[in-house]
Design a protein around this nucleic acid. Structure first.
Lengths: 218, 218
DNA sequence: CGCACGTCTGAACGCTGTTAAGATCCACCG
DNA sequence: CGGTGGATCTTAACAGCGTTCAGACGTGCG
């Protein structure tokens, strides 16, 4: 029993756990450092021997959560039916959005906490997992290599955007079934769009000066 | 001169202005209600005659900002070259992302503040503007009506996601030029994908049981 | 065995959001 | 025109917050 000892021994990890539980229960900012300390059975000031500030604790927690998401996404892609690159990417997107919905407060924390020191790399970062998946698509020739540069921004934006809209309550879907469907549709649409990006046949009836990026206003 | 008067007269609006300025200067949470009050030249408790709590003030501010965004998006779509529905939607997306980048802290506030009373409708809400634009696309036959239901989630997710990644510092693009380009590419990809959604010719070499949504794992 | 260092405590600081009671000004009614 | 009610703002106070600092406590190394 590690309780009741003067030296806690694993206070750092315990504080992170308590903070995560509090975020889950009361939202990103609905708790105090004193509260987390009390839950662990320790004086408020004890935390400062492990984190320079409350914000630092939150950032560390955020990194932990993001890394967990990265692992989850990698596993989800790996389990995709038929191990087909396209399917793998769909699974990535579905899993990303599901993760956000299963624990909205923690998901909000993960990315809203303002990146900490970028020299402490997060591994595996969801972004890197996505990059690997897109590279697979190029390898099999399903994604033209001309459309590859920056494609991760497009896909990540789409998936992350849906997750954000859902966790922030701006959009409501009924149940994980509908959530899955929408996520899959989204990834599918984005992918299709990327593949057809510079297709010769233009899907849109455009005015004459089609290729000039001209537009009104500053 | 409205200063120095005991009755401020427009304290409510002045507080909102001060709060917005503070958000711009120091971030979503880098300021206090007392600070905003002081800036307006008023005692801290005075704010409570106009807002039930600090959170309520922030939510009200958020609504004001979202409505301004809605107007901006509508104007941007209206200014689109040739008034073509496809171009209009591109302009919508570009303007949305630009708005976020021009004032990242305020943009974060807008959507991160947790919706207030939904009975106080925001007009024009960016979502509604988007819906109108998509309906235009259906009207001209550019978007099949079968792909229309829920399409606003897909497009909104994509655009909002890019804006979020940028304002949260998860992705960095160099300059508004690159931002515009990425935003346009994103909307273009999503639209193309939506249009081709149920195209008979499958872009992906899929295993036989293509249409069954079966996938491994819970 | 002793001692130094990492770990935690206790008390205190200034600041926060919020509340209660009282001062002040304005608009309206007689 | 005089007075009064109610909205508006002030002053004072509260508990709780993040953070700091001096000191008590254990542990492990010499």
């Amino acid at each position: 029993m590690s309780k009741e000892r003067y030296h806690h021994g694993e206070l750092r990890a315990a504080l992170l756990d308590a903070a995560e539980a509090l975020v889950r229960e009361r939202g990103v900012d609905g708790w105090s450092l004193r509260e987390a300390s009390a839950r662990v059975g320790v004086a408020p000031s004890a935390a400062y021997h492990h984190f320079p500030s409350r914000d630092a604790l939150v950032r560390t927690l955020s990194e932990r959560v993001i890394a967990r998401l990265g692992e989850r996404l990698r596993r989800a892609a790996g389990r995709a039916f038929g191990d087909h690159p396209h399917r793998r990417l769909i699974a990535y997107g579905r899993s990303y959005v599901r993760w956000a919905m299963e624990d909205p407060a923690v998901a909000r924390l993960a990315f809203a906490a303002g990146r900490s020191d970028p020299r402490t790399p997060i591994s595996p970062h969801p972004h890197d997992v996505l990059v690997a998946e897109l590279d697979r698509l190029v390898d099999t020739g399903e994604l033209p290599s001309t459309a590859r540069p920056g494609a991760e921004f497009v896909v990540w934006a789409a998936v992350h955007g849906l997750a954000t809209l859902l966790t922030d309550g701006l959009v409501e879907l009924d149940g994980p079934r509908a959530t899955d469907r929408e996520a899959e549709r989204l990834v599918d649409a984005v992918l299709t769009g990327l593949v057809r990006e510079q297709a010769p046949e233009q899907p849109w009836p455009t005015p004459r000066s089609a290729h000039s990026q001209r537009h009104a206003g500053p």
